[in-house]
Design a binder for these strands. Structure first.
Length: 108
DNA sequence: ACGTTGACCTATA
DNA sequence: GTATAGGCCAACG
């Protein structure tokens, strides 16, 4: 496994419960700014990872749950988010700005 | 081997 | 403020 994906999984794993982040933030944190799509591929591989990766805490810049369809069930992601106290409506994270967790600022 | 697609983001009009 | 274009790199057909 490339270090890139491993790093992505590690960052995603460090996301606190009840918080969310965006692909671009992770990509920028890894230094591969602009390659946010690779983060998405990394999430795709997260299912194959043995360790649990809270991919449901990762959403796009708009706070839209674009990758919910890649879960076991499209509703599973929303269920997980609501289970952590994150309000989700119309596939959008409510108070996304407040729940946003930037690895660059927080994790640094 | 080439072309298209994809869990995206930034920039310009 | 919305709309369109370009870029990025890897996987799939």
């Amino acid at each position: 496994m490339s270090d890139f994906y491993q790093n992505v999984f590690e960052v995603v794993r460090q996301i606190p419960a009840g918080k969310v982040t965006s692909y671009g933030a992770i990509a920028r944190y890894l230094g591969s700014a602009g390659s946010s799509r690779m983060v998405g591929w990394a999430m795709n591989l997260s299912h194959h990872q043995e360790v649990f990766v809270p991919a449901h805490r990762v959403v796009n810049r708009n706070g839209l749950l674009t990758g919910k369809i890649h879960f076991g069930s499209p509703d599973e992601m929303q269920e997980l988010l609501e289970n952590e106290g994150i309000a989700v409506e119309n596939d959008c994270v409510i108070h996304f700005k407040e729940l946003f967790w930037d690895p660059i600022k927080e994790l640094l």
